[in-house]
Amino acid sequence: MSKFTARFAARWAAFAFAAAIAVVAVAPASASAYAGPGPVRGAFILTVSAGEKPYQGKPVVLICPPNAATSHPNPVQACAAIAKAGGDFDRLPIDPAVLCPFIYDPVTATADGRWGKKAVHWTKTFGNSCLLYAETNPVF
């Protein structure tokens, strides 16, 4: 088994474990603060990697609405942003107030999971971490 295949299998095993915990959890930790529209639920494994190779960074689990299985540092706002984008990471709102330098120091973000009934497998390489922040905050 290659390093990539082993890493991919390990990530999905972690995702399955997190999903099982999400089902067992009785109540969301911040359900009253969740501002997402409707009953859409989602679960993602998110990574940010230095360079252009995906899946090299430490994975973070995001469950929407947030519960005890979520390891994301800002789950309520991240879930609200994903809900506003309809689960499409390419439609996350861009912050026009952020000014980024023209320095090429690539970072690659990935999101794997589900939004409602739709499977999500998203990967994008940004020119630098500032651009990642401007285009995906508060999710990444």
Rank of each mutant, 00 (worst) to 15 (best):
T47I: 00
Y55M: 07
A22V: 06
K124H: 15
A80S: 14
T70P: 04
A22L: 01
G42F: 09
N74E: 13
A33L: 12
E52F: 03
T108C: 11
T70N: 05
P66Q: 04
D95F: 07
A68Q: 09
A29T: 15
G42E: 00
P75H: 06
P75A: 04
D105A: 12
H121N: 11
Y34S: 12
V60H: 08
D112A: 13
F15K: 11
A43P: 00
R11K: 13
P73W: 03
P106A: 01
R41K: 15
Y55W: 15
R114I: 13
T47F: 05
L46Q: 12
I63K: 05
A69F: 03
A81S: 15
A20T: 14
G36F: 00
Y34I: 02
D112R: 13
G116L: 06
G86A: 02
A35M: 06
D88N: 15
L46K: 12
S32Y: 12
C100W: 08
C79I: 08
T125R: 06
A111R: 02
F89A: 07
A35W: 02
A78T: 04
A9P: 00
F17G: 10
P96T: 11
C79Y: 02
P93L: 03
A16C: 08
H72D: 02
R41D: 08
A13T: 13
S49T: 11
R7C: 01
G51C: 02
A18S: 15
V76E: 10
I63S: 01
P37S: 14
R7W: 05
I21G: 07
I82E: 00
P106T: 03
T70M: 03
A50G: 04
V26P: 11
C79A: 08
P101R: 10
D105R: 03
A85S: 10
A83T: 04
S49F: 09
A83E: 01
A81Y: 11
A78L: 07
A119D: 12
T123Y: 04
H121K: 09
I63M: 15
V61R: 07
A43V: 12
S71L: 09
A69T: 07
Q56P: 06
A31C: 11
I45F: 12
L92G: 04
T47H: 05
R7H: 07
N128R: 02
T125L: 03
I82W: 05
A9I: 07
R114S: 14
A22P: 08
G116K: 07
H121F: 06
R91T: 06
A78E: 04
G42M: 11
L62T: 06
Q56E: 13
A33T: 06
I82R: 02
N67C: 14
P37Q: 14
P39T: 12
G42Q: 02
P66T: 13
A27P: 00
I94M: 10
S30R: 09
V26Y: 15
N128C: 01
G87A: 02
C100P: 05
K84T: 10
Y104V: 07
V24M: 11
R41G: 14
P28C: 10
V107C: 03
N74R: 14
T47N: 01
A83I: 00
I103G: 00
A97Q: 14
A78S: 14
H121E: 07
A33Q: 11
C79P: 04
S49K: 02
A109C: 12
P39R: 13
A20R: 10
D90W: 06
A16R: 15
F44Y: 15
I45K: 09
L92H: 08
T108N: 03
A97D: 15
L62Q: 05
A14P: 06
F89M: 08
A81N: 13
L99W: 10
A25Q: 09
